[in-house]
Amino acid sequence: MEAMLEIADVVTAYGKIEALKGVSLSAAKGRITCLLGPNGAGKTTLMMSIAGALKPRQGSIRLEGSELVGLSPARIVGNGVALVPENRLVFPQMSVRENLLAGAYQRNDSGEVTADIERMYARFPRLKERREQLAGTLSGGEQQMLAVARALMSRPRLLLMDEPSLGLAPIVVKEIFGIIAELNREGVTIFLVEQNAHLALQVAHHFYLMEQGRVTFSGNPGELAEDEVIKRAYLGTRRSAG
């Protein structure tokens, strides 16, 4: 399987505290790869490191062979990586349409951008209804959709998603995961952070588990479901949120 993203031995630290202690993993092209792990494991740190918002101290992050470490977040977006950040981070005082335009900031094909906005409206009809509304007035689920749409506006080769289900009602979470599967069928490579393993099992092709800054498990959905430790911690008694 051809890799879209290859991460090798990445160390990222806040001051003296290493949040990532040598992380290596890869995400296959055209697939959905899911990263599981408890709070504080370093999942968001990894996402921010890939997106360039945090600078790894060592290691390499390659997108189809080209190195991303050392590039600014803007350049990384230009290279075809878009992150849907944790907690969505829409621009609350800007309209839905302006949020989408911000996602296309680097593109110079304004005609195509307008067409893409229409495509987003077709995919997310509720965003179309609220196109001139300020993003801050949207519901949590709508904001999540806006964040996804904004990221897609840069036409990414690789879409990073940091806990898209966080703080959303179960029915909305289901909708979001439907969209994730749909995007993937259309050919978008997705690297997803999720705490809800049940949900992730329904869409993802490969899993990693991260604990305390290290990758401690790698396997396909079948292997994941059979791993006793993971079963207890992530699948066992915990009720599905979906």
């Binding site: 600014s72 977040p73 803007a74 878009a82 950040p85 621009f91 800007m94 302006e98 900031y105």
Partner: peptide, 25 residues
Amino acid sequence: TRFGLGLRAIVENSLAASLSGIDVE
């Protein structure tokens, strides 16, 4: 203008702006 859009995005949330591909600096 696009410059204005970028500027307003930075004012609202500079992290989100840079993740959207806006060169904040």
